[in-house]
Design a protein around this nucleic acid. Structure first.
Lengths: 329, 329
DNA sequence: CTGAAAGCGCTAACAC
DNA sequence: GTGTTAGCGCTTTCAG
């Protein structure tokens, strides 16, 4: 026995489909007795109204598409949880797709979501495929970017203030007396670019108290150790490392420990993201909290606003990061 | 400008809807030139076929509903990622809903998913509401349970061998020379019950080498410290703690450290789940890996099998856990 | 208060 | 090869 339709409910209740529909939607103009009969029939059949048919009619599916790199990454998991918090209260469900950081997959994910007629989308920032952007506008699907993905996006987005992230890190390290700073940055993302900008401008601002600084880019966290070995070979005598995120910071700490370097005495380490486990490392990791969960919540809010008024002014929310000082600096 | 329909594509290409449909679905019986014209029109309009209409017709939505406690929990995040891995290759998308461990929310999530006409569901184990189960069977929606939720489930499930989890922990602790073992268990879940069973049977099997043992139940990880304080007050002189999961193990370690107890010398600690951060704690946490990601993948496989043959025999996959020995024991 | 009928976008017979 | 039409499940005018 498959899903039962409104027709079957109506038949069982001995009324017409339209009456059944009215009853189930609690319309005022229906005899209480009839209504009761319909409700009873529905319950008996385990009737669940088809969102498909409803959506086809109303043009609303009550689903929101979400594309992130991968939910395995606790950072994105928090983000998605935030989105859910902001959304499920309004009756929306999340249609989840992963891009695994590949622009190609991101494109097909977006396409798929459009086909599913999601009412809106929240897009974790890969460099969005040109074709994807076209599709989005041609179908005029409301969407919000997680993190700005270009210097001057003409779309709604919610992001951390990445320039400030770079600045905060440097300022903190300087205050702690470190004067030879290595920044291990991630590759590619616009976020990374902005953090480098913030890093450099802060270095300049504090130039009297900073002897040396370097920026090294790693493709992934697997490459951290190799990069640090190289740095050693090149004679980089850093006494502090600013890591693009906590994931990288872990690798850094692991390597430094294996070199018998003491943290924070010989080398200070600071990360970004404030992941749950950061607090329980030893030493506990100093990090910059960019409010990942909050970003998700705000993204949901922005999207809802956009959905309700597609012509409202562009919404660009930039959240200020916060330093969380712990034992590693 | 909203979504364009097949009719608009057809009009722009100067053909009928059926021809357009055939062209877009690469049917053999359509003139190559016509097809090209249709494809061009579709591209120009950014046409994306409506899954709603398709689903209404075909009875398939190519979506799978997933209900877990919360994606914030890295354990469930891994699970969901595993599910996605096993599913997205087949063209399915995931409709995600959280239960936050509340039976009430779980019920509405299931109901919502049925309304969305998901082709199948994967359910993280809360004690599934009676009404929910009825709805599931009445609508004959294929589903798979994550973790068995009762002694003798008549449904497909994929779960860790929880009895063995309990046994492995005890055996390992005994081999390491610990002889006074405290088991900090979780509340309510059937999993917890089975682990306790395994724990007790192993204690019995090794009774010559175990002096004392206790089981304490904690409602949540926030209650760990209080529970350990109580234990101390009661004079429990354990020298090893088996924790229901790594999350709890962290709290335990934190507390033990604050008491200046040395791990693993004064007290051994073992957890369950092998979360990513377990390896980087200090000391690194000995844990039991129940293959969370694998569980997700297998659940996807089982569901696909069930969907393709709704009458195939009940599938109950039980994965053997594996001890991961590290510094905490 | 209730029923009949049209239509949302699509596919698959069935004609031509 | 291509067009016409019915119908998937629902809501909503429009008639009674």
């Amino acid at each position: 026995m498959a899903h039962s339709s409104l027709r079957e409910v109506a038949k069982l209740a001995g009324v017409s489909v339209s009456t059944a529909s009215r009853a189930l939607n609690s319309r005022p103009d229906v005899n209480p007795k009839t209504k009761a009969r319909v409700l009873e029939a529905a319950k008996q059949l385990g009737y669940a109204p088809s969102s498909l048919a409803k959506g086809l009619w109303s043009g609303q599916t009550m689903t929101i598409g979400v594309v992130v790199t991968t939910i395995m990454n606790p950072f994105y998991a928090s983000l998605v949880a935030g989105i859910e918090n902001g959304l499920s209260g309004e009756g929306y469900s999340i249609l989840l797709n992963s891009s695994y950081g590949e622009s190609e997959k991101e494109f097909s994910a977006i396409k798929l979501l459009i086909e599913h007629r999601v009412d809106g989308m929240i897009l974790g920032a890969v460099q969005t495929h040109r074709e994807a952007a076209d599709l989005l506008t041609l179908n005029s699907v409301p969407f919000v970017l997680l993190g700005r993905n270009s210097p001057n996006p003409k779309a709604d987005f919610v992001a951390a203030d990445d320039i400030m992230v770079g600045e905060l890190a440097v300022r903190h390290l300087v205050e702690k007396g470190y004067d030879k700073i290595l920044f291990i940055n991630a590759r590619q993302s616009y976020s990374a670019q902005l953090r480098a900008e913030g890093f450099l401008s802060a270095v300049k601002a504090h130039q009297s108290r900073i002897k040396k600084h370097w920026i090294k880019v790693v493709p992934g966290k697997e490459d951290v150790e190799r990069t640090l070995r190289e740095a050693a070979r090149q004679g980089l005598d850093f006494n502090a490392i600013f890591c693009f995120n906590d994931d990288i910071a872990i690798e850094v700490i692991r390597y430094l420990k294996s070199c018998k370097l003491r943290i924070p005495d010989d080398v200070g380490v600071i990360g970004v993201d404030n992941l749950d486990f950061s607090a329980i490392l030893s030493p506990p990791l100093t990090t910059i909290d960019i409010h990942k969960h909050e970003i998700g919540i705000r993204a949901a809010e922005v999207l809802l606003r956009r959905m309700e008024d597609r012509d409202c002014p562009i919404q660009q929310v930039i959240l200020s990061p916060k330093l969380v000082e712990r034992g590693s600096t």
